[in-house]
Computed example of a mutant assay.
Amino acid sequence: MTSQVEHTDVGAYALGILEEPDRTAFSNHLAACPSCTAELQELSGVAGALAGIGPLGDERDDADTGDRGPAEVVNLLRRRKAADRRARRGTFVIGAAAAVTLVAGGIAAGTSISGEKGGSVPVGHSAHGPAEDAYRSGTPLAGTGAPGVTGGLVLETKGWGTHAALELRGVKGPLECELVAVSRTGERRVVTGWAVPERGYGVPGSPEPLYVHGGVAWGPAGIDRFEVRTTGGDTLLTVTV
Rank of each mutant, 00 (worst) to 15 (best):
A82M: 13
H7I: 12
V5G: 01
T230E: 03
A87F: 03
V123F: 07
L237M: 04
K158P: 02
R68A: 10
D61K: 05
E39N: 07
G151R: 04
A164D: 01
N75R: 15
Y201H: 15
H128N: 14
L40Q: 05
S27T: 14
V171W: 04
A146E: 14
L30M: 07
G215L: 00
S27F: 10
G105S: 07
L76N: 13
D64T: 13
Y201W: 11
R60D: 06
T111V: 15
D84F: 05
A25Y: 01
G152E: 07
P122L: 09
S3C: 15
C33D: 13
N75Q: 12
P220R: 02
T91D: 15
D62Y: 11
T101C: 14
L210V: 01
L166Y: 06
D62A: 10
R85V: 14
I94G: 01
G143C: 03
G152N: 04
G145N: 01
E20R: 12
D84C: 00
E39K: 15
A217W: 04
H7P: 00
V182T: 11
S44T: 15
G66V: 12
S35L: 14
V149W: 01
E156H: 09
G193R: 14
A49G: 03
A99M: 04
E178C: 04
A108I: 10
E132I: 07
Q41L: 09
G105W: 00
G95P: 00
E132Y: 05
R68T: 12
T240Y: 07
L155G: 02
A164Q: 04
G90F: 07
L141N: 08
D84H: 02
A25G: 07
L18S: 05
L102A: 14
